[in-house]
Amino acid sequence: MPRPRHLGPIAGSLAGAAAVALALTGCVPNKAVAEAEAVQVTLTDTSCTVKTATAPAGPITFQITNTGSDVNEFEVLAPDKLRIAGEKENIGPGTTVNYVVQLAEGSYYTACKKGMVGSPTSLAPFTVTKGAADEKSPSESKQVAQAVANYVSYVKDQAGQLLTATQTFAAAYKAGDDAAARAQYPATRTYYERIEPTAEQFGDIDPALDLREADLEQGQNWTGWHRIEKDLWAPAGFTPSDPAGRAVLADQLVADTQKLYDLVHAKDFTLTLDQISNGAAGLMEEVSRTKISGEEEVFSHTDLWDFQANVEGADVAYGNVRAVLLEKGATGKATAKKLDSEFATIDKLLAQYRSGDGFVSYTELSTAQVKELSDSVNALSEPLSQLTSILVK
Rank of each mutant, 00 (worst) to 15 (best):
G313Q: 10
E342P: 02
T65C: 01
A244T: 10
A11Q: 06
K31G: 00
A250L: 07
A19S: 10
K51L: 10
G237I: 11
F269N: 02
A57M: 01
A247R: 05
A23P: 04
L304N: 06
S293T: 12
A181Q: 05
G313L: 05
S241P: 08
A124R: 13
P197A: 07
Q167E: 15
V144G: 05
A236I: 09
D262S: 10
L325I: 03
T188W: 03
C112K: 00
D357T: 12
F238Q: 09
L263C: 01
D206L: 04
G282T: 13
E295I: 09
N150C: 04
L263M: 08
K113V: 01
A36G: 14
F74L: 01
R289K: 14
Q146R: 13
E200T: 15
D274Q: 10
K230D: 07
H265T: 12
P29D: 02
D347I: 00
F269H: 08
P138G: 05
F62R: 00
P9T: 13
K259G: 02
V71W: 08
P138D: 01
N278W: 11
T257A: 09
I10V: 10
V128R: 00
H301P: 01
E200A: 15
D242E: 11
F238L: 04
T54L: 06
Y108F: 12
Q40T: 06
A23K: 12
A172L: 07
Y185Q: 03
C27P: 02
S300G: 14
E229W: 06
A172D: 12
A334T: 11
S381R: 12
T110V: 14
V316R: 15
T166L: 11
A53E: 13
G313V: 06
G224A: 07
V324F: 03
V33D: 01
A133T: 15
Q252P: 07
Q63N: 09
Q167H: 06
L209D: 10
K142H: 14
G94T: 06
N278G: 14
A336D: 14
S277E: 03
C48I: 02
K88T: 04
D375A: 11
T257N: 10
S376G: 02
T110C: 06
P125R: 08
K393M: 11
A281D: 13
A187T: 15
H265W: 07
Y353H: 09
V360W: 04
N90M: 09
A234V: 13
T49V: 14
G68Q: 05
P120G: 03
A149Y: 13
S300K: 02
T129Y: 03
D262N: 15
S137F: 01
N378L: 08
F269L: 03
V33S: 01
D340M: 07
C27F: 08
D357E: 12
G16V: 03
G12D: 08
K393A: 14
D242Q: 11
A145M: 11
S241F: 12
G332E: 07
G294F: 12
N310V: 06
T49D: 11
F74C: 01
A34D: 14
Q386A: 11
W222Y: 02
N90R: 07
K51W: 02
T61D: 13
E286D: 15
A36D: 14
I205K: 05
A309G: 15
K338S: 13
T367E: 09
L384W: 00
